[in-house]
């Protein structure tokens, strides 16, 4: 059942690096992370790779396998052909540190820029009442395991380093959507800031984020597009805009 597997593993650091060929044994049912570990234990003791749970729950083992952003612990070796060489590289949208490990601090910086959940100031612990149907949309986004595969694949920053300043990325669009749809969040300008500060308008809804999300969060359909529509409500729709002005004057909002 065990077979020889041909792999190409990118090794190097921020200065230089290259793909290296290795042959390694692979057993039935193994995932790519298993064989990487075998390479590490038997041939390259200092091969750098991040992982934690090996169960698709923590989002640490993000890398690119045959050019596609994936979790190594959820990618079956058997999903590739017997003769196929499996090529693994670090994420290509972020600075590389060593081998398969990249510097993902960009994402933590962006997380800092999203205003936190803002419950009503008079809400007391234990008194929150929310209906299941009202929390379900946000719950979908909270499934996110922060693997940052969506961030990695998004061409806005993958292909344009300079956009990193002004673009929060799909992971944080779902965070904004989560809060904007949260039944008790009171912050009203999330839509405006999504567009003006976090770069929602840069997204051209080409859906690569959704394609790679291991949690199958429908990032584009359920978060980005609804947020774009909400932005239109407050910024580009004269009818709604007028309506909101009038209602505000009457104190209905």
């Amino acid at each position: 059942m065990a077979r020889k597997l041909n792999m190409r593993i990118w090794r190097g650091d921020s200065v230089d690096g290259a793909l290296q060929d290795v042959q390694v044994e692979a057993n039935e049912g193994e995932v790519v992370l298993d064989v990487i570990h075998r390479v590490q234990a038997t041939q390259m003791g200092d091969l750098a790779v991040r992982w934690n749970c090996k169960a698709g729950k923590c989002g640490s083992c993000s890398m690119e396998i045959n050019g596609k952003p994936r979790l190594a612990c959820m990618t079956q070796v058997a999903s590739y052909g017997e003769e196929e060489t499996i090529t693994v590289t670090p994420l290509r949208a972020f600075p590389v540190i060593k081998d398969l490990v990249t510097d993902v601090s960009f994402n933590y910086k962006k997380a800092m820029e999203i205003p936190a959940y803002a419950p009503p100031s008079d809400l007391k612990p234990g008194e929150a009442r929310m209906q299941q149907v009202d929390v379900e949309r946000s719950q979908e986004f909270r499934k996110c395991i922060e693997c940052f595969l969506c961030q990695d694949t998004c061409h806005v920053i993958r292909d344009h380093e300079e956009n990193k300043k002004s673009f929060a990325g799909p992971r944080f669009f779902i965070r904004i959507a989560e809060l904007d749809m949260h039944p008790l969040d009171t912050l009203r300008n999330r839509k405006q800031t999504a567009q003006e500060e976090h770069g929602l308008g840069m997204c051209n809804i080409t859906k690569c984020c959704t394609e790679v999300c291991p949690e199958h969060i429908r990032i584009t359909d359920n978060a980005i597009i609804p947020m774009k529509e909400r932005v239109v409500d407050v910024k580009y729709d004269p009818v709604r805009w007028l309506g909101s002005k009038i209602r505000k004057r009457e104190g209905i909002v």
Binding site: G17, G67, T89, A93, P95, V96, D159, H160, E162
Partner: peptide, 20 residues
């Protein structure tokens, strides 16, 4: 050089390694 060929990124010469 920008995008995936930016200086800080892993040095890989091709624009994609996708095999499909």
């Amino acid at each position: 050089m920008s995008g995936v060929f930016s200086p800080s990124r892993a040095k890989i010469a091709v624009r994609t390694l996708r095999t499909d």
